[in-house]
Structures are given as structure tokens and as C-alpha cells.
Design a protein around this nucleic acid. Structure first.
Lengths: 336, 336
DNA sequence: AAATTTTGCGCAAACGTTTGTAACCCTTAT
DNA sequence: ATAAGGGTTACAAACGTTTGCGCAAAATTT
């Protein structure tokens, strides 16, 4: 309705200069020895006219936007929406807003998002990258504090914090072995992604460590999708060596597996045991509740946010690369 | 690494003035009759130095940020994360970025978020409000195009688009009645929220319309939470008139219901039928798959975004209030 | 050859802040 | 009386864009 208030309009109203008003309203009154009289007059007028400073102008001047760019591959994936929620909440506590981009697992979208973040002068970037490491990503990202989550590039200069996928996978596999399962099949997701690679490695190592006990393991699959879970389950359960346990490397894969197993008239865990990577509220309410390796989303988000804040505040060396892997947690259902 | 490029630095490099460079780089070359020679030189230098315009400065000048503020109550709720994803994707197509706030159902957070949006001069706001309608909300929001989703205020000037909760609830109830259920209990969420009110109304009307057939209905409950689902189910299933069908007004409520019913040793749908409001990927993979009323999230998001864009572009009258209710869809599981 | 038009480009103000510096007024000490 | 000093406030430049206007040179017309 009424035109936007600015320092100028308040200046006209109160007779004080814009500088004085700026200082009062940004809490610098003491420092510049503004009189109490001026303070009260200015405060009152600001209050009355519902003044709020133009952060765009302030950002331009201060070269600080108090904005973080957050780029994730798929917000409808609970893991990522959870992540986003944590980051948003944490950053809000420090006065930062979040520009959110959903890249939909698409490199072009990611590129657009990062470019946009840069153009908008975000103070920092948190990203779950989808693109292969390339000069592009690095060049885009090297001029602004950036931290990766979940996925990362092995020997790059980009800091990251993620789940210890190797350990999680290893311990889940070992858990199955301890429960007496001998023929374990893992259904993997996108085979090129680092988390997936690590899960495969952990799985294989655990199997290898118990080879003498007659434990056999196999891995197949190609994407983090329900369809992949369905087709792989169909294939392996009708093969000649039917596994007695299946390790789904992701929530969506698991759904496909369950669905297929039930439609085949088999039961969990009697005919085949099930364990999954990633957590979900629904897992506890399924029949049976699903045993899974839960990534420490809260801790990851928290840690990544804190590290980024430190980078922004210059409390961490320019070229100090930070690589953190957090241990996931095994949550017991009754699917094994 | 290297200092940020600006029009000024390119000006020094090429010898052309900042105005000329600005016009070339913003595609206004033709309009201002810039020579091809200048265009190529400037383009090349911009390319070489990886120039990207400072959108903060541009925003300040143009009074347009190409940013939309999106405020939702809980991003870990699939309904809202889905919503957010749709809005983000849609707005991206029109060159807008999204500032996302998760209010966590907290009025103070919402207030902060909206204030922040205003200070940051967003071009428009999409919100799922949590606060009661008040002068505050209106005053915050009246100076920038705003549209509400899901929840709304009956006779306010704020436009909204949401599900036709009344119709959805009515048809779900009627569906139960048609399947022969006679004693139907609805477990509601936050009783003050408009969607909940409408669902109750739809439920009651459907029941009333079939009263002559001996259909009885009742409503209880107090929040959209698993706990509420649990406690209400426990209470009603151990009461003297045990319902033969339960209508859960939300996903989380449903989870509580299922869990309790199973732990009581009852089965769905033989002992009691189940139907739910809101959709979820997991519903199809539960045992049995859940019959539910799915809100048309995609359509809502799309429509709301489009309306907001029109408001921003001045293609809709200043004080024309837009109220849209979209029909939800009944998705058949096997829980009835 | 003069007048007019076209072409190509630069000047400078403006957007709303922040902040170093200067300046004013009023005491108080010299 | 003058200087010194503390308490208050204002001036003006800067952040990086965009754009109305104006101007010179080249091209065209008369």
C-alpha cells in the first residue's frame, strides 16, 4: 500500500541524517555516541512506519548477503528433504536464509543452480553434487566457500561431510551374517556414485571376511529406484541360487523388493531377510518393520553447516580441505 | 581466487563504457544499436573472464529480485516437500529462485520468515500459513504479491489455492458407506485449521446423508501426529461401539492407526477398514495398500505458481482475490 | 555543399545502504 | 580570551548495475 520506507524517508521525518539513522537502527548507536534523544526519536519513527532495511542495498554495500545456496538432487527424497530442513533450521539460527535448488539429478540444472548462487553472491554453498567432478564445477565453486554432502570427489579440493558408507554397509552385512544368513544379495543404486561404491566395497569386504564360513555374496542393480528393486528381485529370486537375504542400498529399492517378494507369495523374514540403507518414518510401520542402516542426517547437516559457517567467517584455512565421515546407525526392525 | 569481474573491469579491458557493456550483455545490443564489432569484443572478454553480472546490484537498480519466498510448515512432511519441489521446478522455468523457509508450525518462525522475505525484496510469496489471520500477517504481506496454499483465511484479501477438502472428505466417506461400512470413525488433526474443518464438515455431511441407512459417524482427535493416531485408535477400538471403518485425516495419523490396530491383533480390512487423507509413495507398498484421498499437489503447486506470476506481472487486478479449490483423487488400495 | 538523418557510444544519475571523516557546539582548562 | 577536548551529527563516497539523454561522426538526402 504505502510506499516502502527507506532511510531517506525516515530522515525527512525526523530531521536526522541517513547516517545517524543507519547507525541507530543497526545497533551502532553507542559506538558513534548518538544521543539518547535521537535514538528514541528514530526508533519510534522506525517502529511507527514499520521500517525494515533493504537487505539488497545492504548486501551490495557490505558484500555479504546472509544467504546460503543449497543444492540437492531430489527434494521429494526424504533423505534430502530431511537434510534441507536441518540445514535451514540450523542456518536460521545464525541469521542466514536458504536459496534452495532442486537439481533433479540433472547436471544442467545443477550448473544453473550454482551459477545462480554465484550471481546472487551467496555467502556459501552446500551441495549434494550430481555432476562428475570437472573444471566447471570447481571453477564455479572455488570463489565461494563450499561444502559437499553425501556425495563427494575423492581427491578434490572440495570439503565434504557424509556417512561412512563403507562402515555402514560392512556392519549391516555382518549383522546379516551373524543372524545366520549365508547367501546374501545386494541391490545397488547408481554404480558410479561414491556412496554406492563405498557400500559395495563394505559389502564385499564383509562377505570376504566370512568366506570361510560359507557365506556368499553378490551385487547387482543399477539405480536408486523402485523399478530397479522390482526387476532385480524378480531376477534373483527366480534364479537358481535364491538368496536368503537381500540388502537394498536405498529406500526406493527396498520398496521394489518388498513389493515383488510379497507378490511372489514369499514372506519376510521367513523366506528371505531384508535390510536397507537409509531410514524412513514408514519403516517402523511396515509389516514387518524394516531393519535398516540409518544415515545420521541430523549430525551431517549440523556439521556441514558449522564447517561452512567457519569457512565463511574465515576461521578455517583457505585451502584446508575438510573430509568427514560419520558413522551410520543400525536400527532394528523385524525383517531379519 | 581472482577478484570478481564487474562491468568496470570489463570496461577497462575493452575500452568500452559500462553502459555499452551492460547493454550488450543483457541482450539490449540491437535496441541500442551497438556495433557488431563491439558486441563480439565484449562478448569475448565476458566469456574469457567468466563474467556474471552481480544480481544484487541489478536487483537494487531494477527493484526486482527474481526471487520468490516460499514458506512451509514442515519440510519433512512429504506433502510439503513435494509441494516445494513442484514450486521450485515451476518457478525455475520462469527464471525465479526460491528462498525457502521451514516454519516448523511455529508462528514466530513464520513471522521471521515473512519479514525476511520482505526485507530481501522478494517478488512474491507463496505460503502455507501457520499463524491465525491477523493484522500482522496482512500488513506484512499486503505490499507484495502473495498466495496461500493448503491453508487459508475464510474472508480475507489473501488469495489461495487448495484442495477441496470438503469434497474429498465427503467422497471418501461415501466410498466407505458404499462398501457397506456402518460405523465410521474419523480421526482428525488440528481442529482449528481450515483443511481439517472442511474435512470434518464433509465427513459429517456424508454421514448425515445416509443416516436413514443406519450409518453412524463420529469424530475425535486433536493433531496431525502419529501419537494422536495411536491414542485415538486405542480409545475407540476398546470402546463399547467399535467402528468398522476408520478415516484418518492425515498420513501421520494413519501410521498411528495401523500400528495400533496391528498390535491389537486386528487385521485390515477384515476387522476394520482404513482410509486416509493425503498420499504417500509408501502407501502402495504397505500391507494392505492404503486407500486414500490424494491431494492434487502438482496441480495446486502449478496453479498457485502461475497465479503468483500473473500477480507479479500485473496481469491480475490489485485487489482481485483468487480462491481456488481443486478436487482430490481417490486412490484405491485394499484397506477397505 | 549544406542540411538532415542515422549510427554508435558515453555521461551521469539512481537504486538504498554503510562508514570514514569532518564539523559543529558546548564545556572546561589554560 | 583562547585552546583543547568531548559529545553529537552530517557529508559524501562507495557497492555494481541500468537507462535516459546527449553528442560526435558517418551516411544520406536535399
Amino acid at each position: 500500500m504505502n510506499a516502502k520506507e527507506t532511510l531517506f524517508t525516515i530522515s525527512k521525518k525526523t530531521g536526522y541524517s541517513m547516517s545517524t539513522i543507519s547507525r541507530v537502527l543497526s545497533g551502532q548507536a553507542k559506538k558513534y555516541r548518538i544521543s539518547n534523544k535521537a535514538i528514541t526519536i528514530i526508533r519510534k519513527e522506525a517502529e511507527r512506519s514499520n521500517f525494515s532495511p533493504n537487505l539488497i542495498a545492504r548486501s551490495l554495500k557490505l558484500k555479504k548477503t546472509c544467504t546460503i545456496g543449497l543444492s540437492i538432487p531430489a527434494i521429494d527424497n526424504p533423505f534430502f528433504s530431511n537434510l534441507a530442513g536441518r540445514v535451514i533450521a540450523h542456518m536460521k539460527d545464525y541469521g542466514y536464509n536458504i536459496l534452495l535448488a532442486d537439481t533433479m539429478e540433472n547436471e544442467r540444472n545443477e550448473r544453473d543452480a550454482l551459477m545462480s548462487f554465484m550471481s546472487r553472491n551467496v555467502d556459501g554453498i552446500i551441495a549434494v553434487p550430481v555432476s562428475p567432478y570437472s573444471v566447471m564445477v570447481e571453477s564455479i565453486v572455488k570463489s565461494v566457500p563450499t561444502i559437499l554432502i553425501d556425495r563427494y570427489y575423492e581427491d578434490s579440493k572440495l570439503s565434504y561431510v557424509c556417512t561412512d558408507n563403507y562402515a555402514g554397509s560392512y556392519s549391516a552385512t555382518q549383522y546379516l551374517i551373524e543372524r545366520g544368513y549365508k547367501k546374501i544379495h545386494a541391490i545397488q543404486g547408481t554404480s558410479t556414485s561414491m556412496p554406492n561404491k563405498e557400500r559395495v566395497r563394505g559389502f564385499n569386504d564383509a562377505i570376504a571376511a566370512h568366506k570361510s564360513e560359507g557365506v556368499q555374496g553378490s551385487v547387482s542393480g543399477s539405480s536408486f529406484s523402485v523399478e530397479n528393486g522390482i526387476s532385480e528381485t524378480l531376477r534373483i529370486m527366480s534364479g537358481k541360487v535364491r538368496p536368503d537375504a537381500i540388502f537394498a542400498f536405498g529406500t526406493t529399492i527396498l520398496l521394489g523388493v518388498i513389493n515383488t517378494i510379497k507378490s511372489m507369495g514369499l514372506s519376510v523374514p521367513d523366506d528371505v531377510a531384508l535390510i536397507s540403507f537409509d531410514d524412513n518414518l514408514f519403516f517402523d510401520y511396515m509389516d514387518p518393520p524394516i531393519t535398516r542402516v540409518a544415515q545420521p542426517v541430523a549430525e551431517i547437516s549440523h556439521l556441514a553447516s558449522d564447517i561452512l559457517l567457519k569457512m565463511i567467517n574465515g576461521e578455517v584455512d583457505e585451502d584446508e580441505v575438510c573430509k568427514m565421515q560419520l558413522l551410520p546407525k543400525l536400527i532394528h526392525g523385524r525383517s531379519c
